[in-house]
Each structure stands twice: as C-alpha cells, then as structure tokens.
C-alpha cells in the first residue's frame, strides 16, 4: 500500500504535467504558454522523484520510466481531476487551482511524514506548489471577476469540474492505511483546509460554489475516465514502440 500511495502522488504530478504540456506551442499568449510549461516541468520533476522512490520501495527493478511508460490506465492511481482534458483556458485554470489547493496542504502535511524520503520530496515540491497555487488563484480571480464572458467561462469550468474535486480529499484504502502508519496525512484534516481556500478564492472571484455534492471517484483505485487511455497512448507511444529508446 505504501507503493500504491506513492503512485497516487506521483501519478497526480505526472498526468497533470502531461496535460499542461499539451499547451506547449498552443498557449493563448506566449507568456502563458511558458507559464504552463514551467508548471508542467515542476510537476514532472515531482513525478520523477515520487516514481523513483516508489520503484525502489517496490524493489522489483522498476524505474521512473518503467512506471511512467509501461503501465496501462487501470494501473494508474491519479485522481480523475488531473486527467480531465484541457478543454479551454478556464478549465485548465480551474483544474489547476482545485489541484494546487489540495497539493499545497497535502505537501505541507507530508513534511511530517515518517517516510523521510517522502518528507524531503514534499519539502522541495512545496516551494513549487506554493507558486502554482498563487498563479492559479490569481487567474481564478482575474477571470471570475473579469468581463462577463470570462466570468461565464470560468463558472462553466468550475461547474463542470466540481464533481471531480471530492476525490482529492476522500481517502482511498491506501490513504487510510498510510495515515495510520504516519506516512500520509489524515485527509479529513486536509479537507477543511482545501474547502477554506476554495471558498475564499471562489468568493473573491465572484464565482458561485456549485451546490452539487455528488462526487465522482475511482481514480485512486485505477478506475479512470475514458480520457486517460487516449492520453497515455500519446504519452507512451514512443517508449512502447521503441522500448528504452533515448534521444
């Protein structure tokens, strides 16, 4: 379960990084194109550390690359939120904000992890995630409290993604067991912190918090949306076709 827990964290970072990477060359303006790529590379760095740690802990000789490129969708343990397609800039920002608000508090709590290597990864990642959260919060407010069009688009994105947010702070079996072992934080303590941040930013952004409380789940257990398969096909294509290839 320790292995699976590290995959949850590592896959969140890897899959969101891949999604953000899709903006490369397609950003609304050059400056945001670079901002997306920066965040994507930060997350890729986090994914590398987490998956390397996971592979070594598993002890079956699987490297970060093996774990990234030679698992199928049902073996990925990321939350559904991060595999959701970019759709438009508002969706990208809302997805990023909901995730960052979770990752920020989660990494902060992981500083106390009994897994010392994980605590060290959390410390390094927290610096990056603090900036990501600042960036995505700023864009939530800018677009939510912007023009009529930007407000509508931002609200539409918040409404559509809302049902994927509950999973972040709903414990999986791995979350529960690792929390008992002092390796992972108790997600019931992260949940109010996430909600407080989200409520504050939604309010500042003049956005309405969706009243739908029915939440999707399954990502952490390997049950994914159809989107993940297509994404992995693109991400893994080269290594699957030419295993071990380098350039």
């Amino acid at each position: 379960m320790h292995f699976q827990y590290l995959l949850q964290l590592g896959d969140n970072a890897l899959i969101l990084s891949q999604r953000l990477g899709e903006w490369c060359g397609h950003g609304p303006v050059l400056e945001q194109d670079i901002a997306m790529t920066n965040i994507a590379l930060d997350l890729l760095g986090q994914a590398r550390m987490l998956l390397t740690h996971a592979g070594e802990l598993e002890g079956k000789g699987r490297s970060e690359d093996t774990l990234a490129y030679f698992r199928d969708a049902h073996q990925f343990h990321n939350a559904l939120l991060v595999e959701y397609p970019n759709t438009d800039w508002a969706y990208t920002i809302a997805r990023q904000f909901f995730f960052d608000a979770f990752a920020f508090h989660n990494y902060q709590a992981l500083l106390q992890s009994r897994d010392e290597r994980l605590a060290a990864i959390a410390e390094k990642s927290l610096k990056e995630t603090t900036y990501h959260l600042r960036y995505s919060s700023e864009w939530m407010v800018r677009l939510g409290d912007g023009t009529e069009t930007s407000h509508q688009k931002m609200q539409a994105a918040v409404d559509a993604l809302w049902m994927f947010t509950g999973e972040l702070t709903t414990p999986s079996e791995a979350d529960r067991l690792m929390a008992e072992a002092g390796i992972a934080p108790d997600l019931s303590k992260i949940k109010p912190l996430w909600e407080a941040k989200v409520n504050a930013i939604l309010e500042e952004a003049t956005l309405t918090k969706p009243d739908n409380n029915w939440m999707q789940s399954g990502g952490k257990e390997g049950r994914h949306t159809e989107y993940l398969g297509y994404m992995l096909a693109e991400m893994q294509h080269l290594q699957r076709t030419y295993p071990g290839n380098e350039w």
């Binding site: 303006v29 400056e31 700023e138």
Partner: peptide, 20 residues
C-alpha cells in the same frame, strides 16, 4: 519585453519568461 493586462500580470509573466 512582454505583453500583460496589468502590472501584476506583467510581474508574474516576467517571472516565468525571464527568471526560469
């Protein structure tokens, strides 16, 4: 130089474009 809607965005864009 870069494009931005206001000073705050300009600072954040500059951070991403020029201090990577």
């Amino acid at each position: 130089s870069l494009h931005a809607a206001d000073a705050q965005m300009a600072l954040e864009n500059a951070r991403d474009v020029y201090t990577r």
